[in-house]
Write a protein that binds this DNA or RNA. Sequence first.
DNA 1: GGTTGATATTGAAGAAATCAATAGTTGTAT
DNA 2: ATACAACTATTGATTTCTTCAATATCAACC
Lengths: 315, 315
Amino acid sequence: MISSISTNQIKYVLALEKTGSFSEAADLCFVTQSTLSIMIKKLENQCNLILFDRKSKPITLTKEGEELINQLKLIYQEFEVLQEIIQGTNQEFYGNLRIGIIPTLAPFLLPLFLNKLVTNYPNINFSIDEITTQEITKRIKTRELDIGILSLPIEDQELIQTSLFNESFLIYDASGTFSRNKKYKIKDIDVSRLWLLEESHCLSSQIEKICLLKKMDTSKHNLEFKSGSILSLLELVNMNKGLTLLPKLATLQKNLIKPSYIFNLVNPIPAREIGIITHPNFSKKRLLDILEIEIKKSVKPLLDKTKRIQLINPY
Amino acid sequence: MISSISTNQIKYVLALEKTGSFSEAADLCFVTQSTLSIMIKKLENQCNLILFDRKSKPITLTKEGEELINQLKLIYQEFEVLQEIIQGTNQEFYGNLRIGIIPTLAPFLLPLFLNKLVTNYPNINFSIDEITTQEITKRIKTRELDIGILSLPIEDQELIQTSLFNESFLIYDASGTFSRNKKYKIKDIDVSRLWLLEESHCLSSQIEKICLLKKMDTSKHNLEFKSGSILSLLELVNMNKGLTLLPKLATLQKNLIKPSYIFNLVNPIPAREIGIITHPNFSKKRLLDILEIEIKKSVKPLLDKTKRIQLINPY
DNA sequence: GGTTGATATTGAAGAAATCAATAGTTGTAT
DNA sequence: ATACAACTATTGATTTCTTCAATATCAACC
């Protein structure tokens, strides 16, 4: 008794029946002739029957083959109907999805999943705003945005918060004072050489928290710096041989970051919680599910699964 | 777009829909729960849809799942119909198949394929006669037998001859005069110590041919020996520290044969051609095909694929 | 008998399916 | 709340399947 058969196997049989030639059928199915030969033979074995008479040119069905071919065709047709249903169901996802995402996350997270979504859901118009936490929460409350991706938790209890993953912080050191062999803790950081983004970014307040500073005393730098871009921050840190803390995903940008400048923190590892917020009345629940799953899936292989982390609030 | 899906995947979905529980569905399908989880997830991925709501207890279909499930059921039903057709087609092979096979082959060849045939074709009554070439050809002509398995060619041109494989001859030496390191040719055989089966066996005349004797002069042995059984021949050879030639398949019987007694012949390797003969009016052509394929398949891994062989006629 | 045009086979590489064990989740009863 | 129970998800290892490129084999036609 046949245990399991795949639609590919059926496709191969139908192609061979149609063309009467192994090589042509193989071309039709975009596989090599050896693959087709082997798969036909495998199916014949599973059935305990010889379906094709290889001696005749063109190749024809045997008596047993004749008895099966119609049912195989039928199954394949029903499979094609299934495909149409799937296609149709996918197209039921339509409309606009307006996403707000914090700037310290956007350039590293979006490339991981956005393309797949845009491709799979051609009927959804995605719009992305790279804005701060404050701006995101404001716009979600006013329903200008559907979904916010940011560091959790937010103080506002009205909005729905869904956790996605924890992103640890790492040391980025352009000064050369850190060494590969040692384990660094938070207190090892020389606060006077630390550079941050402008205050409005949650990343800044988180780093301040990590380093146990009330407010960062930037007057120690002889340079006024206001930027929301991690790229600019890195330039600045490099130029001044300073240091900063970077979230994990940022450190994986091999074209921006010298891996030799990155040092892990331990005991515990400071981290931020990344998650999604929505308005309680947000209705595209299913779309949210998909977004959640896709983001989690895309990020997972990039994160280390450490236990000893300490989540830092963004406010 | 889904490229290929297997009936097992569908089975898993239907089981999960039916039971509302991953573990129960897994039991139903005789796989582990992890397998079922993974396969459901895989299908969901292929479809780009989430088919089951894991949060509800029992687990239920999502809206998208509902849209697919009926088509999945339909496909699976048609697959079950296919199985029935296959079953039915297999049962069309019925009736008697009377096989004659030479004694020097039967005990080594039959176990390789007979069981599979008997199992796969429960409606065929197989009957096996272990008889000599002469007897086989006689009975096929009189239609007492359907099929003969023996050493080809036979002189009788009326019967249909189909080749199966070539079986080489090896030296079986109980005297200890052969040594592992040397390559032996036919002329190295001391004819005076050679033992054979009784004359009626084609194996005897083939060995005589190999050793270039007109008729074996058995008077050199002080023992009259008449047996058709290779087992008895081996006993005799062991007892008298003699030697004989054995066909390849016989030498593979590890329980009968000391591997250290076996020596290869080279330049060229003498061999017999094993094949099937049938009466020209034999009608169960398809059955013959199956038999041919099964024997070839079962024997293939046991034979070495040498080029330099010399086929020895059995008459 | 060799040449041509086909199918079959082989050996290797990559992907998929499966399992046992374990981690993580959720709901319930303390 | 907290711990337990019941369930699903994940992991890492193993086996099996699928596929390909290259090659062997077969068959028909000169």
